[in-house]
Design a protein around this nucleic acid. Sequence first.
DNA 1: GCGAAGATGAGACTCTGTCTCGTCTGTAGC
DNA 2: GCTACAGACGAGACAGAGTCTCATCTTCGC
Lengths: 142, 142
Amino acid sequence: MAERLHESGERVTRQRLLIADALEASGRQLSAQELYEQLRRRHRGIGRATVFRTLEALVTAGVARRLEQGGNAHLFVACAPSHHHHLACTRCGRVEEIDEGYVRPVADRLAADLGFRIDDARLDFYGLCAACAAAEERPSAG
Amino acid sequence: MAERLHESGERVTRQRLLIADALEASGRQLSAQELYEQLRRRHRGIGRATVFRTLEALVTAGVARRLEQGGNAHLFVACAPSHHHHLACTRCGRVEEIDEGYVRPVADRLAADLGFRIDDARLDFYGLCAACAAAEERPSAG
DNA sequence: GCGAAGATGAGACTCTGTCTCGTCTGTAGC
DNA sequence: GCTACAGACGAGACAGAGTCTCATCTTCGC
């Protein structure tokens, strides 16, 4: 994490490590506000602006990704730099990364068919993960 | 447009028609604010809240779609009810609809491979449309 | 260790979107 | 066409997300 920040010319500070760490440890999608409150509990001094700025920096460095879901707030998720697409469970909040290999053929077909030059793609799938889907299907009383 | 609103149990009002019309006529992605300002010029009385509420209603009725791009504001685009995915030109703002047929195979493969139950997908591609890509490639000054 | 560039924390600020409230209007029933 | 009423309207207050400023602090290259 620290080296990726460094590589992209970002400074490695205590706060950035804390924030990146908390996001990665959670293993799920979090809003900036959630992350701020979570960090605040353990580290009194941390500022709200810092969390926003740092998330921005993490996205730039490629170690986090901004998801668009749920009202006006963005959600953030830690991810490998090569991953850009996600499967988000709307029930437990878990996020799985989608391999570029799933996406490439679609982009290529679109480019070929419509003449579009695709620079960026945002593929986010929402639904239930295997565990939640199984729980849902089980004919139990709710 | 009017009949689709009607079909989904929404009232057909002068304002809703104006807003739906303006969005459709623009043929591109617009933020609620842009739309509000545009309408305001021609129709003094229209309210900001009305534009937000109406866009919400249009999305619900399936005649418009909310895109997630560019900072914190949502962009809206008029679209056929069966279309849910878009190719947005980052240069001229034009939006092309992507047929569900492009997307279905990816969703199916993901569901099969990962056991995910996919309820909703958001596939937005960003880049240059054919015209803008051509203009870019032309070795002209400017 | 030193200095400069950049990050930090606090909080004011901006902007998007929602809510409230009194008024207006589209729609259904006649 | 008239009436009643549910739902939409406009204005503006409000809430929440995200940005900016500024004085201070920290990181990092030397």
